[in-house]
Nucleic acid binder design. Sequence first.
DNA 1: ATTAGTTTTGGTCAAAGTGACCATAACTAG
DNA 2: CTAGTTATGGTCACTTTGACCAAAACTAAT
Lengths: 236, 236
Amino acid sequence: MYSSSANVSERQAAPPSLAISTVIFALRPSESSGRPTLWLPLVRRIREPFKGLWALPGGPLSHSESLQDAASRNLRETTGLAPSYLEQLYAFGGLHRSPTQRVVSIVYWALVRPTEAALADESENVRWFRADRLGELAFDHNAIVEYALWRLRNKLAYGSVAYHLLGEYFTLAQVREVYEAVLDRELDPANFRRQLKSTPEIEETGEYLQGGKHRPPRLYRFTGRPGLDPDNRSTL
Amino acid sequence: MYSSSANVSERQAAPPSLAISTVIFALRPSESSGRPTLWLPLVRRIREPFKGLWALPGGPLSHSESLQDAASRNLRETTGLAPSYLEQLYAFGGLHRSPTQRVVSIVYWALVRPTEAALADESENVRWFRADRLGELAFDHNAIVEYALWRLRNKLAYGSVAYHLLGEYFTLAQVREVYEAVLDRELDPANFRRQLKSTPEIEETGEYLQGGKHRPPRLYRFTGRPGLDPDNRSTL
DNA sequence: ATTAGTTTTGGTCAAAGTGACCATAACTAG
DNA sequence: CTAGTTATGGTCACTTTGACCAAAACTAAT
């Protein structure tokens, strides 16, 4: 089935190239309202096709690393970020994704804590954008980001993913702000609090967040592992 | 980044091969109880590695077809089946999946209606197995089937997938049998019926299933499209 | 024809969960 | 000391869910 030492007849036999890309989400305060919003880092294309346009960070799959390793290496190299959550999103393999050649991209999505995101590399060719205000991206990357957002919203509803956008300690209001930013609608503080308090994975600490303008909120901690991807089967 | 006409220095430069495989589910009556159970077709390995073991149907990705097209072509060629549902499962890319070379497999999962499954090709090298009684499969295919089963159970709970394992017309008891077979637990007939009747996608027909031993049940029809994968974006 | 057996179908009831909303506690800023 | 704001706890009506009951409708056997 898999021809080992093939008769490389110029055009037909060339296999599709395999690339890894990553959609990276982090919360940053909006310039206007100051409330946390979803941002993601993009890299500028420095060659054709789509030269000059912004694109998801990515690169080819090296021969000696797993898919997930390739994704986190790429994350580190292009943006200097260490993700708190990393999961495979989808394999995109349409015929005309790139005008010059056939490329199959295995795309991951990642969450980064605010502390990490603050010290991320930003340069001429790497810049952060609000997830709801991207321009036209290279390749099919607009559609990919849309799908990643859809997945993020879904996973959020299921439960365990919001805390990877926050630090180790957080207030319940901060969790609510994550939900409001991602789902883009306001939630009742009292009802939201009731739901969180009923989930056993959120642990009350004895500490309170000081320095605010109003009543100091209690700090909580998240205990519990994320889902069970094939990649994370070790954590079973 | 992607070396076009590369200096093919024997070992390192060879990119990982890209393959497509499919986990195909269908309902068949159990030999013992006669009640519907989950089955899936496997193909026998006729060469090394894992020669003689059973494996998921699959093959290389041709240069001129999309991932989904490759999956359905492979489905048709190896088993003669036309699926009623087809969705990408996951891209498996561990380093040691195949002992002889690095292979990245993009795996799809499919559902087949009973009528289709009945006239499926079965031969010396293609055979159906009960999903809960597979032996040791080639490569990491046991883990892949496990993950596919997990996905099937999840999608079932969400809603729209059970009907693709049934014919166009069905009784509510048949839907319940699908759930019982996949989730492997009994469900209360009255409560289950109440839930189904509250979903607008299930349409009552004027017809009844005749020929049974007891009160003839009403026939229903499913109206409504499956989920919104990137592959199925056309159906938005 | 009558009866027993089985499935289909509709219903009740209590428990649990959800959304809308009210009220008090606890802090800061003036 | 007061006004303003957030944190926190609570009520109430409505919906959903699981356990269970009972009548309807058919077949098979007597």
